[in-house]
Deep mutational scan, measured.
Amino acid sequence: KHICAICGDRSSGKHYGVYSCEGCKGFFKRTVRKDLTYTCRDNKDCLIDKRQRNRCQYCRYQKCLAMGMKREAVQEE
């Protein structure tokens, strides 16, 4: 069993190059498709875990990228 590289929830498989849960997969897809931009209200180092993953979209998206999620993979779907 794999866990989500972004928030630690149960992974549903590899999405956009990274083991991730449905929540983070959908979040990344929406962000890329709609070309959304986020801002962090703190120091750009918010904790992203299962409980708090919805608290800061900026940091969640940065963690998706840092863990290796690929924007191109969304476009190719």
Rank of each mutant, 00 (worst) to 15 (best):
K1D: 09
K1R: 03
K1N: 09
K1Q: 03
K1W: 02
K1V: 03
K1M: 06
H2F: 07
H2W: 05
H2Q: 09
H2T: 09
H2A: 06
H2P: 02
H2K: 15
I3P: 06
I3H: 12
I3F: 07
I3Y: 07
I3V: 02
C4Q: 01
C4D: 01
C4E: 01
C4Y: 00
C4M: 00
C4F: 00
A5H: 14
A5V: 07
A5Y: 15
A5T: 14
A5I: 15
A5Q: 13
A5N: 09
A5K: 10
I6A: 04
I6N: 02
I6P: 01
I6G: 02
I6H: 01
C7K: 00
C7T: 00
C7I: 00
C7L: 00
C7R: 00
G8E: 11
G8N: 09
G8T: 12
G8R: 04
G8I: 03
G8L: 03
D9M: 02
D9C: 00
D9T: 05
D9A: 05
D9R: 03
D9E: 15
R10Y: 09
R10I: 09
R10L: 04
R10W: 08
R10M: 05
R10Q: 11
S11H: 09
S11G: 05
S11A: 07
S11Q: 05
S11D: 10
S11R: 04
S11T: 05
S12A: 14
S12W: 06
S12H: 04
S12V: 12
S12E: 15
G13H: 13
G13P: 04
G13D: 12
G13W: 01
G13A: 13
K14L: 05
K14M: 11
K14A: 09
H15L: 04
H15N: 03
H15W: 06
H15A: 04
H15R: 08
H15F: 06
H15G: 07
H15T: 03
H15P: 08
H15E: 06
H15M: 03
Y16L: 08
Y16P: 06
Y16V: 11
Y16K: 05
G17I: 03
G17S: 09
G17K: 06
G17W: 04
G17A: 05
G17D: 13
V18D: 03
V18G: 12
V18R: 03
V18N: 01
Y19K: 08
Y19D: 08
Y19W: 06
Y19G: 03
Y19A: 08
Y19P: 11
S20H: 12
S20W: 14
S20P: 05
S20T: 15
C21A: 00
C21T: 00
C21I: 00
C21Q: 00
C21W: 00
C21S: 00
C21H: 00
E22L: 03
E22D: 07
E22G: 13
G23E: 08
G23P: 04
G23Q: 04
G23W: 10
G23C: 03
G23M: 02
G23R: 08
G23V: 04
G23L: 02
G23D: 14
G23A: 06
G23F: 02
C24H: 00
C24F: 00
C24I: 00
C24R: 00
C24T: 00
C24N: 00
C24S: 00
C24D: 07
K25N: 03
G26P: 02
G26M: 06
G26N: 04
G26V: 12
G26R: 09
G26C: 06
G26D: 13
G26H: 09
F28W: 09
F28H: 02
F28L: 02
F28A: 02
F28N: 01
F28Q: 01
K29M: 14
K29I: 04
K29T: 13
K29R: 11
R30L: 03
R30I: 02
R30V: 02
R30N: 05
R30S: 04
T31R: 01
T31S: 09
T31V: 11
T31C: 11
T31N: 05
T31E: 03
T31Q: 06
T31P: 01
T31K: 03
V32C: 02
V32Q: 10
V32T: 13
V32P: 02
V32R: 03
V32H: 06
V32A: 10
R33Y: 04
R33A: 14
R33Q: 08
L36T: 09
L36R: 12
L36E: 13
L36I: 13
L36S: 10
L36K: 09
L36A: 13
T37G: 14
T37Q: 15
T37F: 08
T37I: 10
T37E: 14
T37C: 15
T37D: 15
T37R: 08
Y38E: 06
Y38W: 06
Y38Q: 08
Y38A: 07
Y38M: 13
Y38G: 08
T39H: 15
T39Y: 11
T39A: 10
C40V: 01
C40F: 00
C40I: 01
C40T: 01
C40K: 01
C40L: 02
R41N: 07
R41D: 15
R41E: 15
R41C: 15
D42H: 01
D42V: 03
N43H: 15
N43R: 11
N43T: 14
N43W: 10
N43D: 03
K44W: 10
K44L: 06
K44I: 14
K44N: 13
K44Q: 08
K44E: 08
D45G: 12
D45H: 06
D45A: 07
D45K: 15
D45N: 08
C46W: 02
C46R: 02
C46I: 02
C46M: 03
C46N: 03
C46E: 03
C46L: 02
C46K: 03
L47Q: 05
L47Y: 09
L47C: 07
L47I: 11
L47A: 11
I48Q: 15
I48Y: 02
I48L: 12
I48N: 15
I48T: 11
D49A: 12
D49S: 08
D49Q: 13
D49I: 15
D49C: 04
D49W: 15
D49V: 13
D49N: 14
D49T: 06
D49G: 15
D49R: 03
K50M: 14
K50C: 04
K50H: 09
K50L: 07
K50P: 09
R51T: 13
R51S: 12
R51F: 08
R51Q: 10
R51C: 07
R51P: 14
R53C: 07
R53P: 13
R53W: 11
R53G: 10
R53F: 08
R53E: 15
N54D: 04
N54K: 02
C56Y: 02
C56G: 02
Q57N: 07
Q57A: 11
Q57S: 07
Q57R: 11
Q57C: 08
Q57Y: 06
Q57D: 14
Q57T: 06
Q57W: 09
Y58G: 09
Y58V: 02
Y58S: 11
Y58W: 13
Y58L: 09
C59I: 00
C59G: 01
C59K: 00
C59L: 00
C59T: 01
C59Q: 01
C59M: 00
Y61N: 15
Y61C: 07
C64Y: 02
L65C: 14
L65F: 08
L65A: 08
L65N: 15
L65K: 10
L65M: 07
L65D: 04
L65W: 05
L65Y: 12
A66M: 08
A66W: 07
A66Q: 08
A66L: 14
A66Y: 08
A66G: 12
A66P: 01
A66K: 14
A66I: 08
A66D: 13
A66V: 13
M67T: 11
M67I: 12
M67L: 12
M67N: 10
M67Y: 10
M67P: 01
M67Q: 09
M67A: 12
M67D: 08
G68R: 03
G68Q: 07
G68V: 01
G68P: 01
G68N: 09
M69R: 00
M69N: 01
M69K: 02
M69S: 03
M69I: 03
M69L: 08
M69W: 10
M69F: 14
K70F: 14
K70E: 06
K70I: 13
K70H: 14
K70L: 12
K70P: 13
K70A: 10
K70Y: 14
R71T: 13
R71V: 13
R71P: 11
R71E: 11
R71M: 10
R71G: 11
E72S: 13
E72A: 09
E72T: 09
E72V: 15
E72C: 07
E72Q: 08
E72L: 07
E72I: 14
E72K: 01
E72M: 06
A73E: 10
A73P: 12
A73M: 14
A73F: 10
A73H: 11
A73Y: 07
V74H: 09
V74S: 07
V74E: 09
Q75H: 07
Q75F: 08
Q75D: 13
Q75S: 11
E76Y: 10
E76V: 11
E76D: 14
E76I: 08
E76Q: 11
E77G: 15
E77P: 11
E77R: 11
E77M: 08
E77A: 15
E77N: 15
E77L: 10
E77F: 15
E77Q: 10
